[in-house]
């Protein structure tokens, strides 16, 4: 009986270990991106924050957590929240400007009128499988902005890293 339980436990552990090995190998690129974002919180990794200009990029280029943190701290970039207003009110990166993708058609023109085209823009949304930041970034590039980046980790990564968040107002 005891031997049977031991064998069962060993086989269950083997299933989990094999699954972990396959899962990590299969998703190693995704996991590397995610963990690099976390590692970049380390002060030693605080290198130059300003990214290179995405010359005539058709799609916005991604930025990691560290770079976005530097840009927020120095105020060099306008941080744009592409999520809907209700989600924005529940929590957003402190200092971010709401520009929901669903309202982009009506909001981009006035935003473009009051914002110099060479300003650095960083767009984020809900992280994970969220595509709103990329789609909004493409619209901003099409509107004539030259330096548009997306923060793929989005609000979840920022919040979980313990960086400043704000709730409510715009």
């Amino acid at each position: 009986m005891k031997t049977d339980v031991k064998r069962l436990a060993a086989e269950m552990a083997a299933i989990v270990l094999i699954a972990a090995a396959i899962g990590i190998a299969f998703n190693h690129r995704l996991l590397l991106e995610v963990f690099r974002g976390q590692e970049s919180q380390a002060p030693a990794a605080a290198a130059t924050a300003t990214p290179s200009t995405p010359a005539a990029a058709a799609t916005p280029l991604p930025l990691g957590l560290m770079q976005v943190k530097e840009l927020v701290d120095t105020g060099e970039a306008i941080i744009i929240d592409a999520r809907d207003r209700e989600t924005f009110r529940k929590g957003h990166i402190r200092g971010a400007v709401p520009l929901p993708l669903g309202e982009a058609e009506g909001l981009i023109s006035p935003f473009a009128e009051r914002t110099p085209k060479d300003r650095l823009l960083v767009v984020y949304c809900g992280g994970y499988d969220c595509h709103d930041s990329r789609l909004l970034g493409e619209k901003l590039l099409a509107a004539g902005f030259g330096q548009v980046f997306i923060y793929e980790g989005g609000f979840p990564e920022w919040r979980d890293a313990g960086h400043p968040v704000a709730m409510g107002g715009e």
């Binding site: 299933i15 972990a20 396959i22 899962g23 990590i24 299969f26 995704l30």
Partner: peptide, 9 residues
């Protein structure tokens, strides 16, 4: 990354 593979196995 891991849980779905546990389910598959």
């Amino acid at each position: 990354a891991i849980l779905p593979w546990v389910e598959v196995i």
